[in-house]
Structure formats: structure tokens, C-alpha cells
Design a binder for these strands. Structure first.
Lengths: 184, 184
DNA sequence: GTCTATAATTTGATAGAC
DNA sequence: GTCTATCAAATTATAGAC
């Protein structure tokens, strides 16, 4: 595996577990077994490294999910997405999303843009999946679905209890709450 | 208003918009109009300041929501919670939750503990609200509800579009997706 | 209580040898 | 490409005068 890839891998792990400002070039250098100046050789600034990690993550995520408009069942697609997020919950890491969510105003422009691109891409994927299955209001359904997955991941991470992720998804399959769906 | 309170207010704003490591004592000092050493007088370490901000936020949130088991309708309670999170979405700030969600492993113990306490408290509030309304599986419903609100807030923040919050909540009120609720 | 001054460390980043 | 050496700036935090 190339040094470039090793750097990306190590940086991704650090970004996911500690946020943008939660680690330094030294940490990554030590992880990879090189010196900090070598990281700068591949990625001039920390923001460049972050943006590249995010772009790779977006690509990988979309590949894992597959086309949003192919002939698979909607349930199959949604379940796949659930599994993808669930895997992150078990690893105990955050998603790239929560990644820089709170720090979005405190990171370089390139990294912030890549973060937004990730959300736009995933929201679009869910939107297309719902629309191609014939559902109306596909965009709000997409926003709901993505929000639920993100939030569930957040909870399981903060509470350090992966089962919380499953619990949150279970609640979504219970009988609907009439009073909520028909507000007074 | 006391200096102590001004410090907490300024710190809370900074924590919410930039994360734990996204600002320095200098920023807060400048916000308040004092010197950094004065902050240390009230809060010896940054972790103490963070923990206090979080504890205050938890208390304030619970006060705003009111008792989870009083005789108000469930829909009324849920709507209040929705409004509370929605207000944050409009302000463009994150919730204390997303606060340190991703950084939870990179912040002092006291702050991490206070972050978890917040989630436990809010999860408990929803749980009690559902249970006292006679709903079964109140805990999974609570996890779902809190996840949805957190995730919707996250999305609206990253996409810098407060309406996304409303959109995500709307999707939850649409007709359920049969295939999802009855997985193959 | 608030300040000045400063310590001690860490940070992202650069220059240049090999 | 990877290293050594180093920089300038920023960071949390402390000591002590007033």
C-alpha cells in the first residue's frame, strides 16, 4: 500500500475519532511511521488532507450503496444504508458527517466544502431511491431517513453503546404515534 | 450580569459554533472584554469551563421542556421539543450534543462526562414522555425521536439551510413506508 | 478580581541536505 | 521522496503585582 494511502487511512481514523483539531500531524506521522514533513509533501496543508479524506469517503460511500435508481427494492436499499451506518456505530467511530458538523465554521474552506458535498450526495441518493420507488415527497423522506441514521449514530457514539443505534432504528418500525402524525 | 455568566455565555457560543478545540481563551476573553487570566480565575482549566457550560445547558433544556410525566398531551410535549431544536437550527448553531459528539474522545473527562449526562437526561425525558402516555417500547421510541431531532439539526447546520430541519421533520409525518416497516 | 508578564508546550508549515 | 532542523505563531496555564 502506498504511503499516500496510508496517510489517508490514518488521517481518516483520527478525523473520525477526534475531529479536525483533535490531533496533529505528529500523530498521523507516528501512525504511519514517517515524519511530519513527509505528510506535507503529499498534502501541503491540513485542510488539503481533510478535503481528500472526505472526497474519498464520499466516493466509497456511494459505491457501497450502489445506484439509487436501479431495480432493487426500496427496502433493500434502505437496509443497506442502515447497515453501512450501523457498521460505523459498532466500530465506535463517527461518520464523516458528524466529522466536521460542529466544526464546519472552524475548518478550511476546502474541507468545509467537501463536508457539504458529502451531505448533498447522500441526501440525493436517498431522494432518488424514494422517488424511483414511486414515493411522493421523496426529498423530505430522504431528509428524515438521513437525519435518523446520523442521529442514531451520534447517540450510539456519545453513549458508547452500539445497541442504541439498533434501538433508534427499531423505534422507527413501531406503530406510528397517532397524536404526532396528526398534530392538534 | 456577572462576569462569570458572561464567560459562560461567550464560551457556549464558541463551543457550539466551533467545537472544543476550535477556539481559544483569547477569543472568549475578547468576547467578554477581559483577559485570559481572568477566565482561569473562574475556571482553572478549559475542561472545567466546558463541563459547566454543558451542565447549565442540560438544566436549561430540561426546564424548557418541563416535566416529562405531567398531564400535557404527548403531542404537545413532542412539539415543544421540536421547537426547541428548531430554534437552534434557525440560529445556525449546533446543539450541545453535536457539541462534543465527534470530539468526545479528545476532550477532558469532565467535559465528556457532562456530554453523556446531557444525552442520558434527554433520552430519559423522551422515554418518560412516551411511557406516561401509555406507549409501549418507550425507550426505542425515545431513541428514535432524539436521533431524528439531532440528525435534522446536523443536516440543517452543515447544509446551512434551516428549512432542512423542517423538511426532515415533515418526512416523519408522511405516510409510512410499508416496505420499510415490514422488511422482507 | 483583574491585570501584566511569562512559562512550557504544541501546532502547522518551510528550507534544504541527501 | 524522506529526512533533519527549525520557524513563527498559538495554546493552556501559572505567578505575582495591584
Amino acid at each position: 500500500m502506498s504511503v499516500r494511502t496510508s496517510i489517508l487511512d490514518a488521517a481518516e481514523r483520527r478525523f473520525r475519532s477526534r475531529g479536525y483539531h483533535g490531533f496533529s500531524f505528529r500523530d498521523v506521522a507516528k501512525d504511519v511511521g514517517i515524519k511530519t514533513s513527509s505528510i506535507h509533501y503529499y498534502y501541503p496543508a491540513k485542510g488539503d488532507l481533510a478535503a481528500e479524506v472526505l472526497r474519498r469517503y464520499t466516493t466509497r460511500s456511494l459505491e457501497r450503496l450502489g445506484p439509487a435508481d436501479d431495480d432493487r427494492d426500496l427496502s433493500q436499499k434502505l437496509e443497506l444504508a442502515e447497515q453501512a451506518f450501523g457498521a460505523l456505530a459498532i466500530e465506535g467511530d463517527g461518520c464523516v458527517s458528524s466529522f466536521f458538523a460542529n466544526e464546519v465554521e472552524a475548518i478550511p474552506d476546502a474541507a468545509a466544502a467537501a463536508t457539504r458535498d458529502f451531505f448533498v450526495a447522500l441526501l440525493g441518493w436517498f431522494d432518488t431511491a424514494f422517488a424511483s420507488a414511486g414515493y411522493s415527497e421523496s426529498r423530505s423522506r430522504a431528509a428524515t431517513r438521513l437525519s435518523l441514521l446520523q442521529g442514531a449514530l451520534l447517540l450510539s457514539r456519545v453513549l458508547a453503546e452500539p445497541p442504541v443505534f439498533t434501538l433508534a432504528l427499531e423505534g422507527d418500525r413501531s406503530e406510528p404515534e397517532p397524536t404526532l402524525r396528526d398534530p392538534v
